[in-house]
């Protein structure tokens, strides 16, 4: 299936201006990808400038450092399964502590 991912972006190189960017990610049917899998795909293949917590990720819901607003609710990127073809909306948990895109300090 093809999943539409809408990401609230803010890049320091653009002066932090907020905007929304849409990506389309081909996900194998029934693969049960997480939101972090989608972001990995986008960052590695489509847009290297994307920021989300990744540098010390446990990927297993343990370190509790990958929090983001997922479809409006706060959750962990590595623990959120993308189940259907609805667009996935990803935003940072705080505007004031935002460093880049989904990363907050």
């Amino acid at each position: 299936m093809n999943i539409e991912v809408q990401i609230a972006r803010s890049r320091p190189e653009d002066g932090g201006a907020a905007y929304r960017q849409v990506y389309h990610v081909p996900v194998p049917d029934g693969a049960g990808w997480t939101a972090m899998d989608l972001l990995d795909y986008i960052q590695r293949r489509l847009d290297g400038s994307l920021g989300y917590f990744r540098h010390s990720a446990c990927g297993r819901g343990l370190c509790r450092r990958c929090a983001a607003r997922i479809n409006g609710n706060v959750g962990y990127l590595c623990a959120h399964i993308v189940e259907d073809e609805r667009p996935l909306v990803l935003e940072p948990i705080s505007e004031s502590r935002r460093i880049r895109d989904l990363v907050c300090r």
Binding site: E13, G48, G51, R100, V103
Partner: peptide, 14 residues
């Protein structure tokens, strides 16, 4: 080479 020249949480740089 990385896309973004800014150093703040620059995953590609890491």
């Amino acid at each position: 080479a990385v896309q973004s020249p800014n150093r703040r949480y620059n995953l590609e740089w890491i």
